[in-house]
Design a protein around this nucleic acid. Structure first.
Length: 307
DNA sequence: GACCAGGACCATT
DNA sequence: AATGGTCATGGT
């Protein structure tokens, strides 16, 4: 039995915050058909989660429209689907968020960060798309990362079956390692990625030619998986942590970018300034087994409330 | 026109 | 082990 829509019954899920929080870069907010946005209270997301707000994106070969409703998340696709596990997996709707939040350190900064966006979640993305995206992310603003990736998909991905009302820039799959490996550095630079182009190209070739196995990473212990990813040119500790967290589900991974650095400095060391290595060492032990979730809450809190 | 962006890397202290 | 310069490109 196949269908082009489904309702995922899930509570405590802020779809808008999750899709727009700098972990994935291809989701676009869309005009709702029929009704205007309303504020949602005590149901699907937090007090500020928007009801009726739609998002359009691509998961694998599926073009998907997601809408937050009082019952959960409503999904529509451009083609009939028989197995919706790809969507539950991507959205991580089975995760018991309350249980995760209980493991956070009981301090004032974490309480404030969680209160600022109680339904914020982590997605689980495709490893290659995630790795490639974060190779392109270094010293770029999120809006620019989105633009680079949109160009990349449009030029080198596969055109998906069209559906009316979907914006044209969502019609492409993310290019495979093989598709990127077949590009020249100049073609990639033309997507405005600058010095990141040779890094993306090298990673795509390593994978396409079988010298680097993304599936093997999944089976390694955290530290080994991290070291393995860092063998790729252009992948340092921060980008490795993003891929470990957003694609492989290593919940203890704690990416430290400029925003997190500022958040830690301001919230945990307000008196004297702490060096970057000092902040990293603090983070490595302070946030517990789901440190990655804590990191995402601090990141979102910093960018939306403390900027 | 500065200043900065979900950094990595290499050369110095 | 910790700092400093360099690498493209575009937003604010």
């Amino acid at each position: 039995m196949t269908a082009t829509e489904i309702l995922l019954r899930v509570r405590n899920y802020d779809l808008a915050a999750t899709l727009d929080s700098g972990q994935a870069f291809r989701w676009q907010r869309a005009e709702e058909r029929g009704r205007p946005d309303r504020e949602l209270r005590n149901h699907a997301g937090g007090p500020t989660a928007l009801l009726g707000c739609s998002w359009i994106g691509v998961i694998g070969k599926h073009e998907v429209r997601l809408t937050q409703t009082p019952e959960g998340i409503h999904a529509e696709t451009n083609a009939p689907v028989s197995d919706w596990d790809f969507l539950r997996q991507f959205l991580q709707t089975e995760v018991d968020l309350a249980a995760v939040l209980k493991t956070f350190p009981d301090d004032e900064p974490m309480r404030a960060a969680v209160a600022a966006c109680p339904g914020l979640r982590l997605l689980k993305q495709d490893p290659w798309e995630c790795l490639a995206s974060f190779i392109l992310s270094s010293t770029k603003q999120i809006v620019q990362i989105r633009q680079i990736i949109a160009l990349l998909c449009e030029r080198f991905g596969d055109r998906l079956a069209p559906e009316p009302m979907m914006p044209s820039d969502c019609f492409y799959s993310f290019p495979t390692p093989q598709q990127i490996a077949a590009c020249t550095e100049a073609e990639l630079r033309a997507c405005k990625m600058g010095f990141r182009a040779p890094n993306l190209l090298a990673a795509a070739r390593e994978i396409a030619e079988g010298r680097f196995d993304l599936e093997r990473i999944r089976r390694l212990p955290h530290a080994e998986a991290r070291a393995e990813l860092m063998n790729l040119r252009g992948v340092g500790g921060k980008i490795a942590d993003c891929v470990l967290l957003f694609a492989y589900g290593f919940d203890a991974a704690f990416p430290v970018d400029v925003w997190i650095e500022r958040a830690l400095q301001r919230l945990y060391f307000p008196r004297r300034r702490a060096s970057e290595p000092r902040l990293r060492r603090f983070a490595a032990t302070h946030f517990g087994p789901h440190a990655g979730y804590a990191q995402q809450y601090l990141f979102h809190y910093m960018r939306t409330k403390l900027k």
